[in-house]
Every structure is written in structure tokens, then in C-alpha cells.
């Protein structure tokens, strides 16, 4: 007498195993979906824009005439903006991280600041734009210049920099700072000469990633009020400016009026993506080359 009907078991098992194997393929496809979209997106941009990327386009001035339009002004605007953002976030972000990690006493104030930073990271970028417009452009009366845009974007990415710098500082082992104290160094000397250098690669990686977030932002700048067409190139942080994402935005919007604007937008996207790629490659390079394992 058989207690187990093996044919029945096999029938049921086969079904379950088949389901299992099919779902594995489905899950793989879902994972690859993102990759496929990425490839399509990049292909699409290259097909539309690659022909338009040439020396005249990169060095020329903005123009309503699609054939003559160049994006030198937008490139310079983005670079000036990067300068303001990197200076502000490195000083304020790293300073705040040092305070929170190494000086602040664990208590209510510290956890309030920490929670606050976590919450700020979730605030939509356009809200920062409104803050920037109200505070920097109108109240401080800076106007829509590089400095105002840079300060706004700095506030936007500051939480990212602070969190990354805190993690980098935390990963420096205590034995290093204890050795420094043991040699008679003060706290600030220890931080300046031992902890900061050891944490620097991690801090820089985080700062560069935050910078690449800032450089791709459009919404806060639209709110601040960057006009569509600026002919003179920005020469300092007090000049009016436009950026690569802003040009992509305006050209995409107007592509239903002038078909060539879509090509200009695509060409500008290529330039922006190359810039972002270089930033990220630098971050990865720093992380791999200088990051010490303790």
C-alpha cells in the first residue's frame, strides 16, 4: 500500500517549480527594465542631438535661431554655479558634520538637528526655490544672479553633504585620534591633522555627488526666475546667468513651436550628461584610490 501518490506529487511539484522558474525570469526582466529604459533614453538623446554637438554649438552664444544657437553661456553659468555650491557646501556642510560628530553632546539639541537634516532632505526642490526667491532674490535684493542661485542650491544639497561627511568622519577609527591625544595634541589639532585628512576622500565623494545633484536641478532656478535668453556670458558670481538644465527646459517647451529646438535640447542633454559623468567618475576615482580601509 502506498501512502504517497508520487504521480500526484510530481504533478503538483512540477507546477510549483514551473511557477518558480517563470517568476525568476520575470524578476530578472523587471530588473533589466530600468537598464533598457536607460539605453533607450541615451540612444534617443544621441540620435536627436549628436549631430548638433559641434565646436560652434559649444562655444556660441544663445540665439532664437536654432542654426546659430550655442551654449557657452549655459556651460559657464553651470560652472560658476558649481563654484558657489562647492565652496558653500564644503565649508558649511563639513563644519556642521564636524560639530555634530565630534563636538555636540548627545542630547536633545543634537537629535533635533539630526532629525531636521533628515527632514530637509525630503523637502521638494521647488520649495527651496521659493525660499531662494523670497530670501536671496527679493529680501536680500540680490536679483537672479549666480550667487542667489548658488546659495539656493547649496541649501538644497546641504543635507546630502552633511550626512556623507558625518559618515566619513565616523569611519575614522578612534585609535587614530587617541594616538594623537596621547602625543599631546589638542582636540582641534587632532581634528585638523588626523581626522579630517583621513575622512577627506569620503567627504569629497559625498560633496561631488551632491554637486552633481545640484548641477542637474532645474525647478529651483525656474522659480528664482532665470530668463530664457541671456546673451552676455557670466563673468563673475554677481552676473545674471543661465544653466544647461534651464536651456534644456526652455528648448523642450518650445520644441512644439520650432522642431529644431528638440535637437538643441538633446544636444544640451549630451553636454550635461557628459559633465555629470565626469563628476561621478571623479567621485568613484577618489573613493577607490584614496579611501583607506581601517
Amino acid at each position: 500500500m502506498k501512502y504517497i501518490d508520487s504521480s500526484l506529487v510530481e504533478k503538483r511539484m512540477n507546477k510549483r517549480i514551473l511557477k518558480n522558474n517563470l517568476s525568476k525570469i520575470l524578476f530578472l526582466l523587471a530588473t533589466l527594465f530600468g537598464l533598457v529604459v536607460l539605453v533607450i533614453l541615451i540612444m534617443r538623446v544621441l540620435i536627436e542631438g549628436l549631430k548638433w554637438v559641434n565646436f560652434d554649438f559649444l562655444t556660441g552664444k544663445l540665439s532664437t535661431n536654432a542654426e546659430q544657437a550655442g551654449i557657452m553661456g549655459a556651460i559657464l553659468g553651470s560652472l560658476w554655479l558649481m563654484l558657489v555650491v562647492i565652496v558653500c557646501t564644503m565649508i558649511i556642510g563639513v563644519g556642521a558634520a564636524i560639530y555634530l560628530e565630534l563636538y555636540a553632546k548627545k542630547g536633545k539639541l543634537n537629535s533635533l538637528i539630526q532629525t531636521n537634516i533628515a527632514n530637509l532632505a525630503g523637502v521638494p526642490s521647488i520649495v527651496y526655490g521659493i525660499l531662494g526667491m523670497t530670501l536671496f532674490v527679493r529680501a536680500l535684493d540680490l536679483g537672479n544672479i549666480v550667487l542667489a542661485g548658488g546659495l539656493t542650491l547649496s541649501l538644497l544639497v546641504l543635507p546630502i553633504v552633511i550626512v556623507a561627511a558625518q559618515e566619513a568622519l565616523r569611519s575614522v577609527p578612534n585609535s587614530l585620534s587617541e594616538a594623537s591625544y596621547g602625543m599631546g595634541a589638542t582636540k582641534w589639532q587632532t581634528i585638523k591633522r588626523i581626522i579630517l585628512p583621513a575622512a577627506l576622500p569620503g567627504i569629497l565623494t559625498g560633496a561631488i555627488l551632491a554637486l552633481s545633484r545640484a548641477i542637474g536641478e532645474t525647478a529651483p532656478l525656474v522659480v528664482i526666475g532665470i530668463p530664457a535668453l541671456i546673451i552676455p556670458f557670466p563673468g563673475s558670481i554677481f552676473d545674471k546667468f543661465t544653466t544647461l538644465p534651464m536651456q534644456i527646459y526652455y528648448w523642450t517647451l518650445d520644441s512644439s513651436l520650432v522642431a529644431e529646438y528638440a535637437n538643441l535640447a538633446a544636444a544640451t542633454i549630451i553636454v550635461l550628461l557628459i559633465l555629470l559623468f565626469m563628476l561621478n567618475a571623479t567621485a568613484i576615482f577618489i573613493r577607490n584610490k584614496y579611501q583607506q580601509r581601517f
Partner: peptide, 16 residues
């Protein structure tokens, strides 16, 4: 995919 600027996604949505 997460690092691509949103304006690029906007372009992708509108033109593709």
C-alpha cells in the same frame, strides 16, 4: 537611472 536630472526625464516624456 536615479542620477539622471529630472529635466532630462521631462524631455524624454515629452518627445518620446
Amino acid at each position: 537611472l536615479a542620477g539622471i536630472p529630472t529635466v532630462v526625464y521631462g524631455f524624454f516624456a515629452f518627445t518620446f
